[in-house]
Design a protein around this nucleic acid. Sequence first.
DNA 1: CTATCATTGTGAATGATTTCACAAGGTGTC
DNA 2: GACACCTTGTGAAATCATTCACAATGATAG
Lengths: 228, 228
Amino acid sequence: MSLQSLPGAVAKKEPVAEMRSAKISESAVRRLSLYLRLLQEADSLGQETISSEELADRAGTTAAQVRKDLSLFGSFGKRGLGYAVSELLQEIREILGLNRSWRVALVGAGKIGSALITYRNFRTRGFHIEAVFDTDPDKVGKRWGTQTILDDTEMGSVLAGKRIEIAVIAVPADAAQGVVDRVVASGVSAILNFAPVRLRVPKGVSLRNVDMVVEMEGLAFALTSTER
Amino acid sequence: MSLQSLPGAVAKKEPVAEMRSAKISESAVRRLSLYLRLLQEADSLGQETISSEELADRAGTTAAQVRKDLSLFGSFGKRGLGYAVSELLQEIREILGLNRSWRVALVGAGKIGSALITYRNFRTRGFHIEAVFDTDPDKVGKRWGTQTILDDTEMGSVLAGKRIEIAVIAVPADAAQGVVDRVVASGVSAILNFAPVRLRVPKGVSLRNVDMVVEMEGLAFALTSTER
DNA sequence: CTATCATTGTGAATGATTTCACAAGGTGTC
DNA sequence: GACACCTTGTGAAATCATTCACAATGATAG
């Protein structure tokens, strides 16, 4: 039986805006993103309701953790029944800011950039790559997916002109900080960094790092420390 | 003035093996990996000593955090002076298990795999990709870097034969769990997963995930929640 | 309509991580 | 050799995150 039709479910939830004052931990946000993916899978299989326990099992966490995470933003479930899949899906999309599209630029047209631009999940989640930059004259002017690679020198004006919000940095480590300074100056306020370097960003700019060497070294540590 | 020559520094440290009993948090290990990179940079510039404060500044953390992280494994510094760069470097390499090479296999010869195999930092850190697998008959047999792409069906025997320790999973989400089950059965006990899916591994197998969509959604959340 | 069952939402308890703060140890100067 | 100065290593305190446990709520069956 469907929960969407029950009047209580929507009326009860707290306004999301009010909840934003509290500080939400990065790990909680990561889990929400994961719940979202799991809910989309459940939804596409036609599942209508899900309990915190089932969601926790699929996410590899505990039912209490799921409920706590969701309670940071409101009350979305029904006691005795669980959560309406499609409704919770929509709530999390709203919480994460995914009910709109985001304007993204890619700086660095190398192998990592190439992997990103062909990654379907990106577009389907609302992240639209609207510009690609590189310094290499052999690459500039070439078509890359739906984009033509632009010269690095045009970066400032294009980012500002297209009002790009998120920059993906996929350049060599020694060039990364310079790129960051320039994209921030052009109004970008969120950065996903693939370069193996610690970047400095001004307050108000969000930064996430993806560092494969750090992950591999974490695995090496785990293997080393369990050895006997 | 160099610290290496002073007798106290080495004699004083606790044996690493003994310290391993305590549980080390994942975030502490991440920071160690970062310190290592920063120390290598300092070392290559000829810097001989570094204080916890300077290392913390470069790593974007606090001096107390640096000292606490290091104290989990021993006493490597000299009061009043700081740490000998090349010595601390070596200690961290030992802690993380990087004084040896690791046998790595790559499963999935797509764009992400391509980015990995050409990534120099990998090899220089001791991670040697010794086999590459794919299911696509058009790819099997092609040369990829120093490796020839092998057919997926050979995976089990090759992994076991080469005693591969770490597998990098770069296949589509719906194929990932099957691959994991097979690599684990072939003796692999650490996995770096790029597929956007939650994998299940038996106890004793280490797993790290790199999930670009999760990172991007984290940025979307940050942008959304700071908006007014 | 009452009893039973399932599952949420949430304070309180526990556990983990980070920060504080300072004694201890070591350098350099006069 | 005494004094002034730095910086580590580390208990204790503070903060942050997770887990527990249960009252509250709603569904369902008879």
